[in-house]
Design a protein around this nucleic acid. Structure first.
Lengths: 226, 226
DNA sequence: CGGCCTAATTGGCAAAGTGCCAATTCGTGC
DNA sequence: GCACGAATTGGCACTTTGCCAATTAGGCCG
C-alpha cells in the first residue's frame, strides 16, 4: 500500500499460468451464480488483474464462460466401466463389473461433489436457484402423481427412497423423450416400449431392492419409519 | 408513418391482455436464444411497445424471464397417469394403466413438441446450442464406454435404439445421483443398488423389447419432419 | 552490469443494455 | 364533452462489455 516502495506495480506471469488462474476464478464464480449476474469486472477483481486482461486471454465473456463449461465437463457424468478384460461373456454375467464401475464412479462423485453438482446439478452451468426451483417443483409434482398411481403410498408419506427412485425414472423418461423428439434415434413406438417396460421393471424389481437397504436416518426420513 | 392521419399513436390494451402479449413474444425469443443474447429492446420491438412497458409489467428482465419459465412448465415433464379408478390392485397388474398413461403423455409431447423441447430439451430454458453441444459430447462419450462394456457391439456401429436406451439410462443415473448428493433422499448404498439393478434390468429386459420393434429406417427420420 | 525489446498488463473510451421515473396519451365514466 | 385514471412512452443515469493504444515488467544480448 505504501507508495514509497518502488517495487513493481504488477507481476508478470507466464501465459498459461495466468490463463489458468483467471479460469479458476471464473469457474468459482460461475459455479455459484448464473451467467448474467457475474460481471467480468468481478472476475478480474477476484483474479487481481485488470478487466482488459480477460479479453486478452479469452476474447469475450461468453468465450470465457464456454471455457469454464469445458473444464467442468472433464469429470464424467455417467458411470463408465473400466475396459473389461479378457473374453466376451453373456450379458447376464456382467453384474460384478457393473457393480464395480458404479462403485468407482460414486467414489469419484463423492470426491468431486462440488464440481459435479455445479456442472450437472442445477442443469448446466450458470447455476440458477430460482429457475431450478421452478423446474424442480414441476418434476416433484409429476413424481407425486406417479406414486399415487402405484396405490401403495400416499405421496406425502412415501419413503424418500421411493420418491427418489421415481425421480430417477423421471430423468430416464426425459432423456428417452429427447432421443425420440430431438435426435430421432427412437421411434414413437420404441419410446413407448422403453418407458413402459422401464417403469415396470424399475418399480417391480429395482425399487424393492433399494428399499431393502437401510435409509439415511436423518430428521428428514424420520417420519418414513422403517 | 404518415403524420397527417390523426389516429391514436398507440393502442391501449387491457392489463392482462397486454401482459400476455408481451409474455408470448418473450417466450418465443427466449426459446430460440439464450438469456444474455436476448435484449429487452428486442422483446419490446417484437411486441411493438416501448421498452419501458416491459418493466411496468414485469419489473426486470430477469423477472420476465422467470415468468416465461413458469409458463413453459405448465406442460408436464413426465408421464402422469390419470387417476386410477376403483379398487387397489397388485403392482404387477398395473401395466395397462401405465401403458395408457405413457401413450397419452407421448401424444401430448407430439403436440407440444416445440414447447417441451424448449423447456426440457437442452436442459432448462435459455437454449444455448454451444453449451448443449459440450454437455452432449460428454454424455455421448460416456454412452460409448457403456456400450463397449456390454461387449456386444462396437460403439460406432451400435443400433441407434440401443444407444438411445443407454442415454436414457444416463438420464436415470444423473437424476439418481442428484437425489443422493443434493437432496439426500438416498444413501450411497441405495444409490449404488439403484444404478446397478437399474442398469441390469434395463439392459437385460427392456432393451431387447425395444430392439424387437422396427427402427426408424433412416437415422434422422423422426427428427427431420416438422 | 545495463539498456533494449518483446509481450504481458493496464487504463480509458465508445457502444450497448438495463432500471427507473416523469411526462404524455388514450379511453372510459360522470 | 370533460376530467380523471391507467396505460404507455421517451429519455436519463448507471452498469457492463468490447476494444485498443499506451505502459511496464522482466528476460536477453552485448
Amino acid at each position: 500500500m505504501s507508495a514509497t516502495s518502488p517495487g513493481p506495480r504488477w507481476q508478470r506471469l507466464e501465459h498459461d499460468e495466468r490463463r489458468r488462474q483467471i479460469l479458476a476464478c471464473a469457474r468459482r464464480l460461475f459455479s455459484e451464480r448464473n451467467y448474467a449476474s457475474v460481471s467480468t469486472s468481478e472476475i478480474a477483481a477476484e483474479a487481481g488483474v485488470a478487466r482488459g486482461l480477460l479479453h486478452h486471454y479469452f476474447g469475450t465473456k461468453r468465450e470465457l464462460y464456454l471455457e469454464v463449461v469445458r473444464s467442468m465437463m472433464r469429470t464424467p457424468s455417467n458411470p463408465v466401466p473400466r475396459r473389461l478384460n479378457d473374453a466376451p461373456r453373456r450379458k447376464d454375467d456382467i453384474e460384478p463389473e457393473i457393480a464395480d464401475s458404479v462403485d468407482r464412479w460414486l467414489t469419484m462423485l463423492e470426491r468431486n461433489r462440488g464440481t459435479w453438482l455445479a456442472a450437472i446439478g442445477g442443469r448446466g452451468l450458470g447455476h440458477d436457484p430460482e429457475v431450478e426451483a421452478i423446474l424442480d417443483e414441476a418434476r416433484e409434482h409429476a413424481a407425486d402423481r406417479l406414486i399415487e398411481s402405484l396405490q401403495t403410498y400416499d405421496p406425502a408419506q412415501a419413503p424418500p427412497a421411493l420418491r427418489a427412485s421415481v425421480r430417477a425414472y423421471g430423468g430416464f423418461a426425459e432423456a428417452a423423450s429427447l432421443e425420440w423428439l430431438q435426435r430421432g434415434r427412437l421411434t414413437r413406438e420404441q419410446t413407448q416400449e422403453l418407458l413402459v417396460q422401464g417403469f415396470l421393471t424399475i418399480v417391480r424389481d429395482v425399487v424393492p431392492a433399494v428399499e431393502a437397504i437401510p435409509a439415511a436416518d436423518t430428521a428428514r426420513t424420520a417420519h418414513a419409519r422403517r
